[in-house]
Structure formats: structure tokens, C-alpha cells
Design a protein around this nucleic acid. Structure first.
Length: 328
DNA sequence: CGTATACTCCGGGTTACTTCA
DNA sequence: CCTGAAGTAACCCGGAGTATA
């Protein structure tokens, strides 16, 4: 692992993680990432709460330096949040198209009246669909990506379960409300959502509508997919963190054992020495190379045993050089 | 200006369904 | 074919932020 520090300004660089920990040594393999930039869509837990619809409008209005955000992520990287550099689909609406469009309003007229068990979903869908239909000039209709449009969940005539779902989504509202039908999204739909998620892990209403229209899904489905996707990311991240902490714990335990053993050896050595040999002797030694005088406190035995050897003299000189370098 | 209400979004937890070994 | 585990779409609930009266 390495330390990655990103100072993004224009483009959110979610989390940079250079290498997943593969070593058991935690002390040098700790990988952290700081991103100081306009990470408008990648916010930490605390920051997310602060973000509001206004913030999303700010985001949609382009890169204003008046609203910098700070992302500090101290967690090992999760692949899903990696900023992709290759094989990336282009989503014009993610960064540009929204800038020219006024934000969706959530004020009166957005389907306030319905309040029941499923009021939120119903209201949202009605509002969203209504907005989509009533805004022919929105970016939703103004761009089309080079992505196959799904009709009844069918891509290239390939039949799958989502066909049932999508056709059911066109059925009556009663069916939608009563039956809890869950069918898989197609691989293409999932991949497209995945790519979008890599760009932004949260959606503003316009993005949601655009994605829904593009994939022939209901906005609610897109919204739920992103919510679940965030949850999965967090879960994976938690697992990674847990694994990392486990390795750290193992390493520390190992080190603790080693030091305990070393301590035990020292105690044994100490108890085996005669009393008079344990008295520390302070001696002044002069390095013959640099003529530096050093005070060493060591045992009498150790002093007499080592002071005269040429190799130790050289080692002493090396230590002096090292000290000199460090104190410069 | 402070308060109440309505609305929306999101996270966390759960359920229900699908897929696969 | 049956079954349990894993994955995931959909749902529910509560908290928080915002707009409006």
C-alpha cells in the first residue's frame, strides 16, 4: 500500500488506492487516501448528511470554486469506488449537460397529495414521470448515449427476466403497488448503472431520470439500485477494513510475543550475571577516526570486551557519522 | 425571526426472489 | 430434483435537510 493524496479540483477522484495490502506487515503497508477537491458526489458519512438538494443543484451547475468539499477517506480502497481511467463510458449528462439546466423543483405540484404506506414511492414516481413528460427540452431528451435502448427489458432480442419486470412496470398501478416483483436487471443494464456509479455514487433527480429513461427502468428502480449499490460498497469496505485490522492485530501480537521473549532473555541474562558485573560503568571513548568523544554507559564486561576491537571501532565511527547526519 | 408542517432523500435493516453449486 | 448459500431488487422506517405557510 502507498499513500495517495489527491488534490482534485474539477473532477471528483473518489478514492485512490494504489495497492491493496498483500503483506502482513501493517506498519509500512498502510494505505490512506485524502482527496481535497470538489468531490461532490463522493462524500463521507458526515458530509453526506450536509449535502442537500441545494448542494446537488450546486453540483449540477458546474464547477464553482465557492463550494469546495473535502473528502478524507482513511480506508483501504474498494474497487468499486476506484476512479476508472480506462474502458469508461462517456456520460455527457454527468458533468456537462446538467449545467445548463435548471434544477428540478420539488415544490408544490410535485405530487404532494398522496400519503400512504407507499406514498414516497408513488409520489416520487409520479413526480418524476410527470417531470420527464413535461420537460421536452430537458437533457433527457436532448442527448442520447450510444447505448442500446431497452424495450421491455429486451436487448437484441435476448429474452430474460427483466423483460417480465419491465413489461410489468408498464402495467397498471395496482399491479405495481400490490405485487412485489423482483426480477434481475440485464447485464447491460447493470453494467451501465455500474459505470454511472463509478462516476457518481449518488444521483440527483435529473440524473436519475436520465438513467431511467436510458435503461427503460422506472426512476424508482434506478434510485433503489443506487441505494443498494452504496450499501454493498459500504459492506465490502467494512469487510476490507476488518481484514486489514485483523492483519494489524496479528502483526502486533507477533511483535509483542517477540518482545516478550526478548525481555525474558534479558532478564535471564541479568539474573545470571554476578552482582558486581551488573554495575553500569560510564566510560569515555574517543573515536580514532573523527576524534569524537562519546559517553557510553555499559557494563564493565561489555566495555572491556568490545572497546579494543577494530571492528567495533569502525562501527563506532559509523555511528558517529550517522549521528552527525541526523543532527544536521 | 421562530415554528410547524410537508416533502424528499438517504442509510440501515429486512424481506423476497433468483441463481448457482 | 432438492437444498442451502449468496446475491440483489424492493421495501420499510427513521433521521435529517429544505421549502413554505
Amino acid at each position: 500500500m502507498e499513500l495517495a493524496l489527491s488534490l482534485g479540483v474539477d473532477t471528483p477522484k473518489p478514492i485512490l488506492f494504489l495497492e491493496k495490502s498483500s503483506s502482513s506487515s501493517c506498519s509500512k503497508d498502510v494505505g490512506f487516501c485524502m482527496d481535497l477537491g470538489k468531490c461532490s458526489e463522493v462524500l463521507d458519512e458526515a458530509g453526506r448528511r450536509k449535502r442537500s438538494r441545494n448542494h446537488q443543484e450546486i453540483i449540477s451547475k458546474g464547477s464553482s470554486t465557492d463550494h469546495p468539499s473535502l473528502q478524507l477517506d482513511l480506508l483501504p480502497f474498494s474497487p468499486v469506488s476506484r476512479n476508472t481511467s480506462s474502458s469508461q463510458l462517456c456520460f455527457p449528462w454527468l458533468s456537462q449537460n446538467l449545467a445548463s439546466e435548471p434544477g428540478l423543483t420539488h415544490g408544490p405540484g410535485g405530487g404532494k397529495a398522496i400519503l400512504d404506506m407507499n406514498r414516497r414511492q408513488l409520489v416520487a414516481e409520479e413526480a418524476e414521470e410527470g417531470a420527464a413528460l413535461s420537460s421536452p427540452n430537458s437533457e433527457i431528451s436532448s442527448f442520447q448515449m450510444n447505448f442500446p435502448i431497452y424495450r421491455n427489458g429486451n436487448l437484441n432480442g435476448k429474452r430474460d427476466h427483466s423483460e417480465n419486470y419491465n413489461s410489468s412496470s408498464r402495467a397498471s398501478d395496482e399491479e405495481d403497488a400490490s405485487a412485489r416483483k423482483k426480477l434481475r436487471l440485464t447485464k447491460e443494464q447493470s453494467a451501465f448503472l455500474e459505470e454511472s456509479f463509478k462516476e457518481h455514487n449518488t444521483l440527483n433527480p435529473k440524473q436519475k431520470l436520465a438513467l431511467a429513461k436510458q435503461l427503460n427502468l422506472r426512476p424508482r428502480q434506478v434510485e433503489v439500485w443506487f441505494q443498494n449499490r452504496r450499501a454493498r460498497t459500504k459492506l465490502k469496505q467494512t469487510e476490507v477494513d476488518c481484514e486489514y485490522l485483523k492483519k494489524c492485530c496479528e502483526t502486533l501480537t507477533e511483535e509483542n510475543k517477540r518482545m516478550q521473549k526478548e525481555l525474558q532473555e534479558l532478564r535471564t541474562l541479568k539474573s545470571s550475571q554476578p552482582f558486581h558485573m551488573q554495575l553500569p560503568a560510564t566510560t569515555l571513548t574517543m573515536c580514532p577516526s573523527c576524534e569524537r568523544v562519546s559517553t557510553t554507559t555499559t557494563s564493565f564486561a561489555a566495555t572491556t570486551a568490545t572497546a579494543t576491537t577494530a571492528s567495533n571501532t569502525a562501527a563506532l565511527h559509523n555511528n558517529h557519522k550517522l549521528i552527525s547526519l541526523m543532527t544536521k
